[in-house]
């Protein structure tokens, strides 16, 4: 499969069909059909903006939760992972190698709120044996996008 289109969408999913066609050397129709196919096959799962919430709403917090769980016979981590991901507070769930099993990123309005969600919901799930909560203090870069003041072009305006 040609990954060019995916890379371009991944970089900026608002690039217009005309622009994508120019950039890939294809026709607008071909690009449109390819995007439809990518969506139908579940390769492209969604399109979102990368937002620096710190600039909008200072009551946005998120935390990375380490979950240790007991895998179920025959089901492994599948069942518990799917259970955890259903919570609207949960933004991300990964199965991890190493010292713990599930990495869960949780968002909320306050530290207190997130901590309570972990205490009341996640840690009480049957197969969860322990949790460790790490709050995010500052986000510098997310999804390839720099959220702090990035680098500036120091090349001047002309050179040969």
């Amino acid at each position: 499969m040609d990954k060019k289109l995916l890379k371009l969408l991944n970089k900026d999913c608002r690039t217009s069909l005309e622009e994508l066609a120019t950039m890939t050397g294809k026709t607008v129709e071909e690009v449109a059909a390819e995007i439809d196919a990518l969506e139908n096959e579940g390769i492209v799962r969604g399109y979102k903006a990368v937002i620096d919430w710190e600039r909008v709403d200072d009551s946005y917090v998120s935390a990375l939760i380490e979950l240790k769980v007991t895998p179920k016979a025959g089901l492994g981590f599948e069942q518990i992972a799917k259970q955890v991901m259903k919570y609207p507070e949960v933004e991300t769930v990964y199965l991890m190698s190493g010292g713990y099993d599930l990495c869960v990123i949780v968002k909320g309005k306050t530290f207190q709120g997130v901590a309570m969600f972990v205490a009341k919901e996640l840690s009480t799930l049957e197969s969860v044996t322990s949790t460790a909560t790490h709050f995010v203090l500052r986000r510098y870069k997310e999804l390839d996008v720099e959220l702090c003041d990035g680098t500036t072009d120091d090349r001047g305006h002309y050179s040969f």
């Binding site: 072009d153 090349r155 001047g156 305006h157 002309y158 050179s159 040969f160």
Partner: peptide
């Protein structure tokens, strides 16, 4: 606010 397409080196 100069938008340059003038340089001869990679970004």
């Amino acid at each position: 606010e100069v938008i340059s397409l003038g340089v001869g080196e990679p970004d």
